[in-house]
Simulated assay, not measured.
Amino acid sequence: QVKLDLKKLRNKFPNMYEKLEYIASLTRQLSIHYKYLGLLMFSDNREIIQNKRPTLIRDSVLKLYEQEVKKVKKDSNFVIFK
């Protein structure tokens, strides 16, 4: 079902799909756990997010990563993905 949903998203909202693909690729390339990405995307609890921040990645790199995730969340079509 997830594959079908992603295919629909790609067809109907290609820009949103590309942004999600970019974030997934960035997450993989930086060796950040997908759980942390999930927290950034779906949680508003700053304390939990702060406590789960990866410790082996430089703070400056994490800040850039978090900014990129925020850009995706600001997309008007993020609600459809969510």
Rank of each mutant, 00 (worst) to 15 (best):
L4G: 12
L4S: 01
K7C: 03
K8C: 03
L9Q: 00
L9W: 04
R10S: 13
K12G: 00
K12L: 04
P14L: 02
P14V: 04
N15Q: 08
M16R: 04
Y17V: 03
Y17G: 11
Y17W: 05
E18S: 07
K19H: 08
L20P: 13
L20W: 02
L20M: 08
E21V: 11
E21K: 13
Y22C: 12
A24I: 06
A24D: 13
S25N: 14
L26T: 12
R28L: 14
R28M: 13
Q29T: 14
I32N: 10
I32C: 08
H33K: 13
H33P: 15
Y34I: 11
Y34A: 05
Y36C: 14
L37I: 11
L37G: 13
L37S: 11
G38P: 07
G38R: 03
G38Y: 04
L39I: 09
L39G: 06
L39Y: 14
L40I: 10
L40F: 07
M41E: 12
M41F: 09
F42L: 08
S43N: 02
D44W: 03
N45A: 10
N45F: 01
R46W: 03
R46T: 11
R46H: 05
E47F: 01
I48H: 04
I48V: 15
Q50Y: 08
Q50P: 02
N51H: 14
N51Q: 11
K52Y: 15
R53Q: 15
R53N: 12
T55S: 09
L56G: 15
I57G: 13
I57Q: 10
R58Y: 00
R58C: 05
R58W: 00
R58V: 03
D59M: 00
S60F: 05
L62R: 05
L62I: 12
L62Q: 09
K63H: 10
K63Q: 08
K63F: 04
K63R: 01
L64G: 09
L64D: 13
E66S: 07
E66Q: 09
Q67T: 05
Q67H: 09
E68H: 06
E68L: 09
E68I: 04
E68C: 05
V69Q: 06
V69Y: 02
V69F: 00
V69S: 00
K71G: 06
K71V: 06
V72W: 00
K73D: 03
